[in-house]
Design a protein around this nucleic acid. Structure first.
Lengths: 336, 336
DNA sequence: CTGTTAGCGCTTTCAA
DNA sequence: TTGAAAGCGCTAACAG
């Protein structure tokens, strides 16, 4: 642990050391365009900077330029699975490539308001998974945040809003099940409220697919991550007038619960009940039977988000139409 | 998306609006101690601030005070499980309670250097899971970072370093297995290099427990999250001279793989092979059989970390001796 | 091509 | 108690 009041090395020190003016230091170190600095001077500045261990003050630069190179991404405190982990990595790297620094903040229940957070950071852009209220968005703008991107909303209400492919995910699940011959589907809905934003559009996708295939709408039941709860749901599905023969699970973990519940009831998957998940988590091929699931290509997803942000940072053309299919893939295993 | 060059409301505007001086505004808004401001003035300042929608500039404040109220936590790009999710939430809230704003940054392979990141943020404290090289730590100090806490290292080499309870986790696993009558243990080591920092001390804990109980050291095998790989490991363990009868898994997911591998080989858990995990992930009670595991209380863990940081920010007494046992708990299910 | 200089918005002495 | 003013370190406009 460190704690000292050491004198800071400023750009003025570097200038003196190199025998040039502060402005020159700034130009050299920032590679400012349209300023042709002789190679000799450049070298001297670089040398002086390293010799002195000069580190520019981010605060000063931000104050002066009116914007930082930070991007703040709010993450709901949802149960973070490995899927979220890979999304986070990909997004981080994608912003790195553009010279922006992405940091994350989990928005907890008891946490402070969004506002206090971004005020403290003064980011160039803010990403959020849930809609930000217009007053807040206006406030951000006034405080210098140049771009606000909503990573998820059911419809893209404005530029900078991106529709996550959840509806398509649900659709793909249902279509696969229907193609496999099932005509009575169930939907295993998560029992965690924070997942609502993802679950709703996924279910909607399933419903759409059913409608399109002229199949009865899915019978929705909440399923907790608990074998007993899953067993109860399965029992209910199977004891209905026209029994459910296949279930779309909200995600692979819910599907795991379903598998555990089926085992409790001696219901054989997929013979008695087909199950399909979402995410293709590592454990998906470890279950008994291995899980058929929908995989999301987080790399493509991240790239798209970054594009949206860069576009509105540059303040030019609106976002292109998203090609959701590029980021989704059906992984067939033995649970269907 | 927003993008405008609106004039910023500064503290001077508020001062004018309230008919006072800038200093007064600062005093009132920051509740500066030892400055008795008349209630009337206070009210006028508050009113003016809200009326104008005043938002202090974090950059300016940071520049002036030389430090921000941000805490930057580097997270390895390890496979983030639900365990990490709850850790992150708890840590965020714990810092909130102390008036500090915690943000996370994943340190990816291709990402930029740590240095570029914290330079851009100028945090009051930096948390890291892996040792930071002394030069970097020195550089941070020079740049105004007041505290650097290493959340994990095998030994606490310095104040501000905290020993995560991984060794104790391994010890608890082994002790439980030994108490259940096993005398030949295996250790299922993760095959992901980024997990090394956690896996090494866990294994060391298992080895210590074996030594203390005068039992042979554990036979270590890497186990990927893949049923086939796990089956191969199990076969090897069981075909040794004195067969392994119980395995400590690096975590619950590795344990899941073991369960899947055992199933492939018709090895019955726990009759033929006992398995114990770590984390108590939601799926731990969904496996067949349900998983005995070690649960970590992330709330207690977070509180301890925050205490360490606050201590070194206040620059006073060194950290107290950690009580690791308070944050660990054995969860007995049917896999042992 | 290089140097001087005026702020960015805030906190905090210091004087009134 | 309040007000004036001096910077924190940097960038960018402008002069030389």
């Amino acid at each position: 642990v460190a704690s000292s009041a050491q004198k800071r090395v400023t750009s003025l020190d570097v200038a003196r050391e190199a025998g040039v003016a502060r402005a020159t230091v700034s130009y050299v170190l920032n590679r400012t365009p349209h300023q042709s600095i002789p190679e000799g001077t450049r070298q001297r500045v670089f040398d002086a900077a390293t010799r002195l261990g000069y580190m520019p003050s981010a605060a000063a630069r931000t104050l002066r330029r009116g914007r930082s190179d930070l991007v703040l991404c709010f993450l709901p405190a949802w149960p973070i699975g490995s899927a979220a982990g890979s999304f986070v990595s990909e997004l981080t790297e994608a912003f790195d490539r553009r010279g922006l620094t992405l940091v994350f903040r989990t928005e907890g229940a008891r946490s402070r308001s969004l506002r206090e957070i971004w005020q403290e950071i003064s980011p160039a852009a803010v990403l959020s998974h849930r809609p930000i209220n217009p007053d807040d968005e206006e406030a951000m703008r006034a405080a210098g945040v140049q771009a606000v991107a909503i990573l998820f909303s059911e419809v893209a209400t404005s530029v900078g809003h991106m529709v996550r492919p959840d509806a398509l995910i649900g659709r793909m699940q249902a279509e696969h099940l229907i193609a496999a011959g099932h005509s009575r589907l169930g939907y295993a809905y998560p029992d965690v409220p924070s997942l609502e934003d993802f679950a709703k559009p996924r279910l909607a996708g399933v419903e759409d697919a059913c409608r399109d295939a002229a199949v009865a709408p899915p019978e929705v039941r909440p399923v907790a991550l608990d074998a007993g709860a899953a067993a109860a749901a399965i029992q209910a599905w199977r004891s209905s007038e026209t029994p459910i023969t296949a279930v779309c699970a909200y995600n692979d973990e819910t599907a795991q619960a379903l598998l555990a519940g089926a085992r409790l009831l001696d219901v054989v998957v997929p013979r008695d009940l087909a199950v399909i998940g979402v995410d293709d988590i590592p454990a998906a091929c470890l279950t008994n039977p291995p899980l058929t699931t929908i995989a999301v290509d987080h790399r493509v997803e991240a790239e798209r988000i970054v594009e949206i942000v860069m576009t509105s940072l540059r303040n030019d053309s609106p976002a292109q139409a998203p090609d959701e299919t590029a980021m989704l893939r059906l992984v067939e295993r033995e649970s269907v």
